[in-house]
Design a protein around this nucleic acid. Sequence first.
DNA 1: GGCATTTTGTAATGAACACTACAAAAAAAT
DNA 2: ATTTTTTTGTAGTGTTCATTACAAAATGCC
Lengths: 191, 191
Amino acid sequence: MAFDVDEALLAAVNVFWAKGYDGASVKDLTEAMGINSPSLYGVFGDKRSLYLKAIERYASNDACAPLVAFETEPEIAAAVRAFMEAAIGYATEHESGARGCFLTSCVSTSAGEVEGVEPLLRQAIEETDARLAARFDKEKAKGCLPEDFPSLERAKLMFDLRQGHVFRARAGLERKSMTGDLDHRVRMVLA
Amino acid sequence: MAFDVDEALLAAVNVFWAKGYDGASVKDLTEAMGINSPSLYGVFGDKRSLYLKAIERYASNDACAPLVAFETEPEIAAAVRAFMEAAIGYATEHESGARGCFLTSCVSTSAGEVEGVEPLLRQAIEETDARLAARFDKEKAKGCLPEDFPSLERAKLMFDLRQGHVFRARAGLERKSMTGDLDHRVRMVLA
DNA sequence: GGCATTTTGTAATGAACACTACAAAAAAAT
DNA sequence: ATTTTTTTGTAGTGTTCATTACAAAATGCC
């Protein structure tokens, strides 16, 4: 039976997320993916290529969940809050059991060692910044935010705050230790 | 000649920082440390024990540089800014060439896999939060901040903002892309 | 100076690593 | 139905891994 490539790739994300690139063996990967190593090499190329594909998949899907929350909530302050809450929830209660964020908590480690990783990280950051800023620009066009509202800087601010939550979650801190100041943070973003 | 244990440990930090725990071989470590493997095992125990000691050393020394900047600057707003600038500088221009922060960019990855790491990370975070909060409490006692100023929450905010810069630095983004909004961030920390 | 300890230098150990080979079975394509 | 492609299942390859052994040299301690 031909295996479901996307399902296998998602399984690979979860292994890399739990163990990092060097800590995840091809045996770990093939077991989680439910395929044999010749199939892994046949379809994905090699371990590093699989890793790059895993990063791309994560960056274009999972990492976007808080973005989607931000984009779909109609009122902007509620949208900022939704982003933060989604990010915290995602980092503390992922269905795979992994904590933090694959990109920040694992892929970062290999940025200087595995060729091709750093550009992907940079791209993911820049695209997230841009996507967050685009929502702010929409609010400005509607007159809900001032014309001189610094969309990109506030987008970066939201992204940076998320990284703090991610690190805390990875270190095992409780969700509720991260939710006490969200009102202030939302105000900070929209000030 | 007996080797300098602290110098060797610092060299180990730099290797682990560049390659992560699994990516750093004992050969890499002994070469950088300038000792032979029986000495590494004799003095430090084994690779994992060395790693834990490297984390502790980093957490009690290097990770503290922005804290020291925050604690030594007499005026509180300038102190907050000094923290941010020191954190950015540290993450982008470390003398070893490493980018980001050892704890966030590398140690995080092994949090769920290497026994003993997660408690150290948690401790480092909590101690940093407390140390930042202590400076705020001092300012409150002096009457420079309001009595109801939420020291711990703002300490956490500063720490979380730092994580954003750390991730960007690790991904290779330029220092100047991170410094455009510091005024706003300082204001929000003290609001 | 003599003895004890540490370090060097080197080699070895057993296991694990990423990746490939290949025949048979299964699935997909025609 | 036949042919082609993919996958399974298994084993093998050469290298690397963390760690230990051990003799000789160097250093530290009394």
